[in-house]
Nucleic acid binder design. Structure first.
Lengths: 95, 95
DNA sequence: TAAACTAGTTTATATTATAAACCAAATATA
DNA sequence: TATATTTGGTTTATAATATAAACTAGTTTA
């Protein structure tokens, strides 16, 4: 087969957008990611969980004053997975 | 939102592989696509139908001697959709 | 003539994505 | 000061999707 299997965790529009955001910043908050991706809170929550479970991102829950604040940060594993995904995908894009 | 919606018809590994193949050849037969993509016949049949219904490819059924022969060819609409998809996707890949 | 192969299609199932419904606390409003 | 609304999420139900298994129809081979 000439086509490599694409990491199914990354081959999802919302999760890819999340990773795309996180790869270029130190960290990002739930609310910011929600705004940037235009995702619903529920959907975002689920997808962050999946990325977190896979070890692609680290999610930290804290309080800012009295408000909860969820911060996300890409991990080394996540950076790696993202780069591999992009490389694998190139095969499909320029035949 | 900074992220464009990716054409869901193309944001699927198998269908993207099919389109990637078809964009660089005049036409291709069912069996050849099946080999190149390592898809099962059933899955391939379903995905070709979807691409065909969307007008992204044209599927022609004929006989070669006594054997059925299904030939697929990308359409102008398909080429366009593929190019748009690739362009939209770039946004996610190089942040 | 029966078994196995070719070239598919149809259908059932598993997976995934997504939004709707929900929750707890804080803040605004009447 | 009740009560409504907003904020920042999570949980759960449902819709959509991908995929393989089962099937069909005809052909070749043993």
């Amino acid at each position: 087969m000439q086509f490599k299997t694409l990491d199914p965790l990354l081959h999802s529009q919302l999760r890819l957008a999340i990773m795309s955001l996180l790869i270029s910043v130190e960290s990002a908050e739930f609310v910011y990611i929600k705004e940037q991706t235009a995702a619903t809170a529920g959907n975002l929550s689920v997808q962050l969980d999946k990325l977190s479970t896979a070890g692609y991102i680290k999610v930290t829950k804290a309080f800012e004053g009295k408000k909860p604040k969820t911060t996300c940060k890409i991990t080394a594993k996540g950076v790696n997975a993202f780069e591999t995904y992009v490389k694998d995908l190139q095969q499909y894009l320029k035949p």
